[in-house]
Simulated assay, not measured.
Amino acid sequence: MNDLARARISGGATTLPAAQALQNGLAIELRVQGCADDLRQLTDNLAHGLDEVKAVERALNRSRAALAASEAALAASRNAERVATPEHPADPQVLIRFDTLTPREREVFDLLVTGMSSKLIARKLGGSFRTIEIHRAQIMRKMAARHLPELVRMSIESMASRRDHAD
């Protein structure tokens, strides 16, 4: 209630119904003012919320770009590790390295890339487990393979060329 309204009511300048109407009007005015304040607060919050939505959209776009770059890198990596075909011959280094293997190492190599364990290779070829392990280490060193799957990839890539080379 404003000062003028209080003065009129307390000074007896208005009648009781008029004073009540004035009080009701002032109460409504206060509620309207409160609603206006609430509306300003909601507007500020909405503006802040839109900024947050835009920030999330920017982050999402950055993530999409990173995903696209990762997918492109993966595709390039897969192309780099392609299996040798007539259009894409085997790496000549692999063939040169394969030629450095002894006949016994080639036998072990062929069985090793099929997934046979050293123990089974020893039984099949009639050698000792330790000898096969030594051949396996020599094969890995000569072929410059860090692990067995890399050796298998080399075998697959060079298979057609090795068949042609053997004939």
Rank of each mutant, 00 (worst) to 15 (best):
A19R: 00
Q20E: 12
L22K: 00
Q23R: 09
N24M: 01
G25R: 10
G25F: 10
G25K: 09
I28C: 01
I28T: 14
E29H: 08
E29D: 08
E29W: 11
L30C: 05
V32I: 14
V32Q: 01
G34F: 12
C35G: 02
D37S: 10
D37A: 15
D38F: 08
Q41L: 00
L42S: 03
L42A: 11
A47Y: 02
L50I: 00
D51E: 13
E52V: 06
V53P: 02
K54G: 10
R62C: 00
R64Y: 01
L67R: 09
A68E: 14
S70N: 15
S77A: 15
S77N: 12
R78L: 08
A80K: 06
R82F: 03
R82P: 11
T85D: 08
H88L: 04
L95N: 11
I96V: 13
R97W: 11
R97L: 05
T100D: 14
V108R: 10
D110W: 04
V113H: 02
S118M: 08
S118C: 08
I121D: 07
R123N: 10
K124S: 10
L125P: 06
G126Q: 07
S128P: 03
T131W: 06
T131N: 10
E133G: 09
I134P: 01
R136P: 07
R136K: 13
R136D: 07
Q138E: 09
Q138G: 08
R141Q: 01
R141C: 11
R141S: 12
K142F: 01
A144V: 11
R146K: 10
